[in-house]
């Protein structure tokens, strides 16, 4: 389904791998790179990465399923991850999550039919001073309330 990794990505992977005493150590950065390019990590990518780093594909799968940031299926153009940990929940993240569910018409873990948004809850994002907060792709948004969320979402292409 998904095409081969680009030569540029492959070259970058080689460069990253050279930092470590074992090629396998480059697995996390390489998976980030692949996910950046592909959006998620399918079995095909697992195998390609395994091949490039000279490890068994099963080991890549073990790693992909251990770390929550690796998407195992396609996510929307905007991956919304709302913190549901303590500091954020004290300041009302729960109602914001409900608001997002209503607004997007999806449940947690789902993607809108136009593939624009995926909604997830996550544990602490390390931005508790801006609670309640969320991440859209890799951008942090803090001190959220419903209006602010509406504003942010409405301005996304």
């Amino acid at each position: 389904m998904s095409p081969e990794l680009t030569d540029q990505t492959k070259k970058k992977i080689e460069e990253i791998a050279s930092r470590y005493a074992s090629k396998e150590a480059a697995l996390l950065p390489v998976l980030h790179l692949v996910q950046h390019e592909k959006g998620f990590i399918s079995q095909q990518e697992e195998k390609q990465v395994a091949h490039l780093l000279n490890i068994k594909p099963i080991k890549v799968k073990e790693v992909v399923t251990f770390y929550t940031m690796f998407n195992q299926k396609e996510v929307g153009k905007y991956h919304i991850q709302v913190c549901s940990n303590l500091s954020c929940s004290l300041l009302g993240s729960e109602s914001l999550i409900d608001h997002l569910k209503n607004k997007l018409g999806i449940e947690i873990g789902e993607t809108t039919s136009d593939k624009k948004f995926t909604l997830m809850t996550v544990e602490c994002l390390g931005a508790c001073e801006q609670a309640p907060c969320m991440m859209i792709n890799f951008d942090y948004f803090g001190n959220l309330d419903k209006e602010k969320i509406d504003n942010i979402l409405d301005n996304l292409e």
């Binding site: 068994k56 099963i58 080991k59 799968k61 073990e62 399923t65 251990f66």
Partner: peptide, 9 residues
């Protein structure tokens, strides 16, 4: 041969 692995956490 590593046919088995541990997945998820």
């Amino acid at each position: 041969t590593r046919e088995l692995g541990v997945f998820q956490r």
